[in-house]
Simulated assay, not measured.
Amino acid sequence: MIKIRSARPEEAEELSKLALRSKGYWSYSADFLAACEEELRVSSAQLSDSHWHCLVAELDSELLGYALLDGRLSQNWELEALFVEPDWIGKGIGRRLMDAVKELMRQTGVTRLVIQGDPNADAFYLAAGARQIGQRESASIKGRVLPLFELTVS
């Protein structure tokens, strides 16, 4: 049975590697992935900080995906990352993580989530109830512009 739980600080490196594998699913070049590596890195400090929230999906102790939330602004969180193991993409893991994110927001009274998405994930975020509100330049690739979404929860 797939379980959603909070990430543990000692899982930071494993989550960072999962992010790169997941990004690679979309056939990005090795150079592109190398340029993104630092931005996709999850730190044990983030996973230990009460202002950050990281939910993982697991099956029999195997990590299937995760969602990392920056909660430093109390009412306006940002989805820092949402990645799923390539073999599990399209099997509902991302949706389950987004549902868990929404529930966490409700429990904590947070009403707005900002999401800088990958162009390959536009349909996913729209299906999750987000709306596109603009664009933002990539922190990894100069000149690359990424879609920006907003998800509100009541």
Score class of each variant (00 low, 15 high):
residue 32 F to I: 00
residue 20 L to R: 04
residue 24 G to S: 06
residue 13 E to G: 04
residue 43 S to N: 13
residue 34 A to M: 06
residue 31 D to T: 07
residue 32 F to D: 01
residue 29 S to Y: 11
residue 26 W to F: 15
residue 27 S to C: 08
residue 29 S to E: 04
residue 14 E to M: 14
residue 32 F to M: 00
residue 24 G to W: 05
residue 13 E to A: 12
residue 38 E to P: 00
residue 30 A to P: 00
residue 16 S to H: 02
residue 25 Y to K: 03
residue 22 S to H: 10
residue 37 E to F: 00
residue 13 E to P: 00
residue 40 L to A: 01
residue 43 S to Q: 09
residue 41 R to W: 01
residue 44 S to W: 02
residue 30 A to T: 05
residue 23 K to I: 05
residue 42 V to D: 12
residue 18 L to S: 02
residue 40 L to S: 09
residue 18 L to V: 12
residue 42 V to M: 09
residue 27 S to K: 15
residue 31 D to N: 06
residue 21 R to F: 05
residue 35 A to P: 02
residue 20 L to F: 06
residue 44 S to D: 15
residue 22 S to D: 08
residue 30 A to W: 10
residue 37 E to I: 01
residue 36 C to D: 01
residue 25 Y to D: 04
residue 44 S to C: 05
residue 36 C to L: 14
residue 39 E to M: 07
residue 38 E to N: 08
residue 47 L to A: 10
residue 26 W to V: 14
residue 33 L to D: 07
residue 35 A to S: 14
residue 43 S to K: 08
residue 43 S to M: 07
residue 41 R to Q: 08
residue 38 E to I: 04
residue 28 Y to L: 03
residue 17 K to F: 00
residue 29 S to K: 05
residue 14 E to P: 04
residue 20 L to P: 02
residue 40 L to C: 07
residue 39 E to N: 07
residue 21 R to T: 06
residue 37 E to S: 14
residue 29 S to V: 07
residue 39 E to H: 03
residue 47 L to V: 10
residue 15 L to T: 12
residue 45 A to F: 05
residue 32 F to S: 02
